[in-house]
Amino acid sequence: MLGAIGLLLACQLVGEVVTRGAGLPVPGPVAGLALLIVILRLRPGLAARIRPTVTVILANLSLLFVPAGVGVIGNLDALSAHGPALIVVLVVSTLLAMLAAVGTFIGVRRLTERPAP
């Protein structure tokens, strides 16, 4: 378990150093994710060793968003002033984004899996 946590933290650290050092617009953890993909491809045996820890983390991903979510109490002014409008924007925009993504995914998949003669 500690080995897995060490590996995740090390990937994030390298990701932060590289992106900040090079001034890339990519977030550090996302660069760390890309690095871990490369490491897992080079050393496939590592996957089995980090799997138990990673499974626990991803199964409880929701917990990690609770502290930011509680931040709602610090923004009650902005939220109560514009609450209804903000909720409309968030709901409509999120539904539109999901529709655009799922429609494009299925449309392109059909085109590429069964190319027109």
């Binding site: 760390g32 994710l33 871990l36 996957a47 990673v54 983390i57 799922v102 494009t104 995914f105």
Partner: peptide, 29 residues
Amino acid sequence: LGPATVALALPLVDNLDTIRRSVAPILLA
């Protein structure tokens, strides 16, 4: 949140073969 983002590499690698087959739908979607 940082280490958890890195941890997403594992399910990605697990599904790399199916992802390779759907690169076009993924990028356009």
